[in-house]
Design a protein around this nucleic acid. Sequence first.
DNA 1: AAGGAGGCCAACCGCAGAGTC
DNA 2: AGACTCTGCGGTTGGCCTCCT
Length: 184
Amino acid sequence: MGRKTWFDDDGMKKGEWTAEEDEKLIAYINEHGMCDWRSIPKRAVGLRRCGKSCRLRWLNYLRPGIKRGKFTPQEEEKIIKLHAVLGNRWASIAKHMENRTDNDIKNHWNSCLKKKLSRNGIDPMTHEPINNNLTVTTTYVECGSSSTTTGPTTESHCSSAPSGSACLLNKLAAGSVKSLRRPC
DNA sequence: AAGGAGGCCAACCGCAGAGTC
DNA sequence: AGACTCTGCGGTTGGCCTCCT
């Protein structure tokens, strides 16, 4: 898979990453840490990639502990619940998902979950029934398992979130928890 | 078996926010 | 205070894969 390889005006390589480039990036980050992405093309010998591209590759693919592959029904349900609270804030949602990247979650939402909710008569953006009833009956059917939550539309979806996350979700929804830029 | 359609996923682009000068 | 730089995020695209006809 991946895109064709090409070079931009600054001579930076674009497109699919090779195993060799991956190794160079991993070696560089192991040695210097994740500081100053912009300087990577200058300091990492033989890696002609812009800092942005390096960061994306590291965070979405090379970072240790990343979970790849199919989403479990539990994960899908959690994403739906988090999305109901946080909206399209994929980075925030990813922080509550174990070892899943925002890109992964976003891709799965756009390609799969959104359609499933629509098929079940749920507006994927508002998480309310498309027929606009006062009572929400949401049935998540995925990979042989299902769960149903029923309640008035005015009630926060946090109430049905797994124990422990509801409080944080409420804080996030209220904006009291802010993502902070990590110092180098 | 072949071709088309849709699914899936890696990667790019543009913008917004935070930090620095 | 304002301009500039850098990073992070969300939206979108491109291309391979898989399934269906």
